[in-house]
Design a protein around this nucleic acid. Sequence first.
RNA 1: GCGGAUGUGGUGAAAUUGGUAUACACGCCAGACUUAGGAUCUGGUGCCGCAAGGCGUGGAGGUUCAAGUCCUCUCAUCCGCACCA
Length: 816
Amino acid sequence: MEYNAQSLEKKWQEYWTNNRSFEPSEDFTKEKKYILSMFPFPSGRLHMGHVRNYTLSDSFARYYRQQGFNVLHPIGFDSFGMPAENAAIKNASHPKSWTYDNINYMKAEFKTLGFSFSKERELATSDELYTKFEQSFIIDMFEKGLLYRKKGLLNWCPHDLTVLANEQVVDGKCWRCDTAIVKKDMNQYYFKITQYSDELLAGLPKLETGWPKQVLTMQENWIGKSNGLEFDLFFDDKSKNKLNSKFESFDVFTTRPDTIYGVSYTALAPEHDIVTYMIENSLLSQEIISDIQKMKNTSSIDRQKEKLGISLGLDVIHPLTRKKVPVWIANFVLMDYGSGAVMAVPAHDDRDYDFAKKYNLSINAVIKPFEGEAKVGKAYTEVGKLFNSGEFDGMNSKKSQYNIIKHFEENNIGKKTTNYKLKDWGVSRQRYWGAPIPFVHCNSCGIVMEKKENLPISLPDDVKITGEGNPLEKHPTWKYCACPTCGGDAVRETDTMDTFVESSWYFLRFCASKQNWEKEAFSEEQIKYWMKVDHYIGGIEHAILHLLYARFFTKVFRDLGYIEFDEPFERLLTQGMVLKDGAKMSKSKGNTVDPDALIEKYGADTARLFILFAAPPTQELEWNDSAVEGAYKFIKRFFDRSSNIVKTDTKPKINHSSLNKDEKFARKKVYEALVRANDVYNKKYTFNTMIAGVMEAMNALNTQTNTDVWTEAYWIIASIMEPIIPHVCWDISSNYFSLNNLSKQNVLDEVFIEDSMTLGVSINGKRRCEIRVKIDENKDKIIELAHEAAAKWLEGKTIVKEIVVPKKLVNLVVKG
RNA sequence: GCGGAUGUGGUGAAAUUGGUAUACACGCCAGACUUAGGAUCUGGUGCCGCAAGGCGUGGAGGUUCAAGUCCUCUCAUCCGCACCA
């Protein structure tokens, strides 16, 4: 029979659908696995990154089904978000129809790829039922004080009168009309994620067994906990007068109190209150004011590229030396970290050093190395010995931090403080295609929560997305409503929510079976059974934000009493990007590979096999058309050679000792592949080497003709390859084994027993030859054999050392 | 700029974590079969060299009997930087 991927795959896809093969059981006494891949934004068509993501999760899901687990492997769509509006602007379409058309198309694509998703739990986050519960949670969080309103700086296009996302700002200009953007201070909603800073940080070590270390490190750095000293710097009288006595001092935070005597200037963020006051009261020249404006309108990343400063003509008094210290504005001082002001020690901080050099400010060293001298021409940032530091002279700089903080505290001029880089999470979006924030602004009651029975607050359908203004704000009627508290005239909040909110709890929603979706977000019983997610698979680009937000929501839901665990994801697998010609696949570069075309030509199994074989999942994947061809040929060979096997409902029993050398070797290779397969799902995720193992087994099988060996091999290989190339494996398994082999496979140790082995022989670490020895050969005999084999290289030399590494090699160290 | 990663044949990659570098595959070369081959099968293939041998894991040093793996410095590429998802 000829291998025909298209008809074979279609046949099994229909079979799986008709048999509801992948719907989880409601029998909660069975052992479960919850396999989740990050759900996609419905951009229109699947791209290779998606194929990689879902091939990985599908392999896990299928593997655990074979192992007898009750598997939940759901899928949905993260369907709110800006691209739907961008498409609407571009094609004069409606975000809703664009989104749901895309979803339908992509669902069909999932089917052709043979992904074993539970179709009955499919959801889109833009569904009203999803919005309903999300809004309800938002209200809960508001009541708990975890959601609040404050001013925040946004990118504002003065021409389109709209807020721009960072990606819509190109070189400081609006992407649509090229107008220079300005930063605008607007009221926005924030989640108080900082209330959980410590817990989010403390939870990281518990994830060490299941999460990649790099992700934990990135999150740790992102939360950015640091201990240090906080103190006030007081203006001298002259400066105080300049400021009309409005400000006495400002607050600074430092993680290096040991360098306090080295302070030679201080720097404020351009957004600092004092700067704002000086601008508003014309205490600075027009020229300086416009420089400050320019600085403020520069993105935080661009600001760090070139250090810029502006002298304010003010001085503060050093808290210990009582000397005058000039006050500057510096573009690298961030308003939202610490107090937006720093003490600068150019002698011992790289940034401060560059800045001082540029503006010719003094550099006062106060720490020197324990031995020798510090390098000239750069900041000395290492630990050392204090000098020029008053009573602290001679102390170890690291240890002096404690003493200096103590000194500040005893004299009541400063205190020990902990700071975090983590900021509260701004969730307001001034856009249409998102979940409305369920609040109402009432003239008499102020900001009022919507009543839960009125949820969901749905979006109006009759809008035109033009890219100008906020569509909900502009809508003629939508925002007008009665106050839920007093019944008086009120207006709805027109901000919608960040789409990261939806993706912060979708994994909980998946636990609920569809018949209860109207009634509740999820049930306690279902959550208890399915959570946590056993394997979570997605792109490394989500290492920080999405994963941190999902962890935050989990802790909040716990504190709201909805769930009983602290962390949502037991194990995390972060996949690398899919590249072509060394670059990320993108439409603009024209280097995309269309999954549909690939499936049409070779079938889904080929696409899946190539993707898992070409690189380990955590690494970048370089696309290669001829390697895809190779994957296809392997499957075809695998299918063709199934003609060597005989029909059976049970695995053949083989007497290993009666086999010849080639047969034994083939069997050993097959079982080696099985051992590797089990390792993949449990710890290593190295599908590529597991597949290589199967290929080795196939090559070895081909050197012998024993039908039992062939049959046993296919019984096992069709089982371990089924998670990867399911269609062809189901076909073979149903043709020959009544599908009985698609189940847990046991390793037979007897096939690994050998009586001799090969050892490498090295001279001075350089491999020269090899010897064959009995498995339990003693050391002296091994050395003797090594001497014989390496005689040529030992001539005229003296052996100074002989190293035997059991089961590996012999190294002879020679001289002369 | 800050934080995180990656770098091994012509190509994608492997190496049980300090122990025979290049498994498996692509490509290439040769052969077989064939009217034909962009099908299939068999064999070969790190680089230099006729050979002996030498060299070889981005680069430069170091530790070790032994380094792709550990240390120091350095270069290049990629991811994230809070309104892309």
